[in-house]
């Protein structure tokens, strides 16, 4: 029994010694390799920050022009006091994200809003359209049955109205007759902040039954249908622009932080590198001197 216990006790001790030796004996070469790789990473994050800063200024300019599209569409629903019909629970959620990562919590925020909604009761009547690969990646594992469409190639170039038209066309031709819904997106507030927000979607029936629709003149079913289609496209366009702008600003902050952290690491590693070099020199000197002393 003693024979069994002893190796059990000694092995961890040996492991600790090895570990400590590795820590202390970190060779100069190992440190310099590490230092070089961290420096390269810093270079990459820095240039990514520059790129997204340039993209951000453009996205913000575009967003200003796109704002009336979304606000106008939402105003109509508010003025007409459109409410989702209570007898039809079918809902559609559009998750506005993009294909690109490394930008903080932009995509997880949007996906989380939808995930919490899908975890609540009544989720079986909800269908989701994922715009961008990131939301698909997050939602696919648990809620893949709810996804009816995935849109890819978002975020490489600034979104255009054509993109919004394609997505709107996909929603209209998907064959899913939703009564109400939401476009979940990141609303851009300032360079350092964004917030998950949503735009309402309604079916044509809900709009026709709106109590205050009479404040608008000369509406017939055809005009309403056309307007609904156009407002869907313009709201998607607005949400895409808001999302792109928040994403770039968030990526800028994320990459700035990453460069800062890499800088700290570089400082620490340089210090260890110099200290180790000094130690190696001292040790060699001692060896030489003691060797010489032994000869005397």
């Amino acid at each position: 029994m003693l024979g069994r216990v002893v190796p059990g006790v000694t092995t961890p001790v040996v492991a600790v010694i090895n570990f400590q030796q590795n820590r202390n004996m970190a060779t100069l070469k190992a440190i310099s390799i590490r230092l070089k790789s961290v420096k390269n990473i810093q270079k990459i994050t820095q240039s990514m920050k520059m790129v997204s800063a340039a993209k951000y200024t453009r996205a913000e300019r575009d967003l200003k022009a796109a704002r009336p599209y979304g606000e106008g569409a939402v105003q109509f629903y508010e003025r007409a006091e459109v409410t989702p019909p209570e007898d039809d629970p079918k809902q559609l959620y559009v998750a506005m994200t993009s294909d690109r990562g490394l930008c903080g919590a932009v995509h997880t925020g949007v996906s989380k809003v939808i995930r919490t909604r899908l975890a609540e009761p009544g989720a079986e009547n909800i269908k989701v359209i994922c715009v961008g690969d990131k939301s698909r990646g997050i939602l696919q594992r648990l809620y893949s049955k709810h996804i009816i469409s995935v849109c890819q190639e978002i975020g490489r170039l600034p979104p255009t109205f054509q993109d919004a038209c394609k997505i709107a066309g996909a929603i209209l031709t998907s064959g899913y007759e939703f009564a109400s819904g939401k476009i979940v997106y990141n609303k851009f507030k300032s360079v350092v902040s964004y917030q998950q927000s949503d735009l309402p979607l309604f079916s044509q029936k809900a709009v026709e039954n709106a109590p205050k629709l009479t404040i608008y003149d000369s509406l017939d079913a055809d005009v309403i249908q056309s307007y609904m289609e156009f407002s869907l496209a313009s709201m998607l366009f607005y949400a895409l622009k808001e999302g792109a702008c928040s994403e770039q600003s968030s990526r800028m902050t994320a990459m700035d932080n990453a460069s800062k952290n890499a800088g700290e690491m570089i400082d620490k590693l340089t210090l260890t590198f110099n200290r180790t070099r000094q130690a190696v020199i001292t040790r060699e000197l001692i060896e030489i001197i003691s060797g010489a002393a032994a000869l005397d």
Binding site: S149, C151, Q152, E153, T160, D163, K166, A170
Partner: peptide, 17 residues
């Protein structure tokens, strides 16, 4: 330039493309 669109749309059913 404003006429371009690169979005690809994949319809999904039963949890798969």
């Amino acid at each position: 330039k404003r006429d371009e669109s690169h979005v690809r749309i994949t319809p999904w059913a039963n949890g798969r493309p």
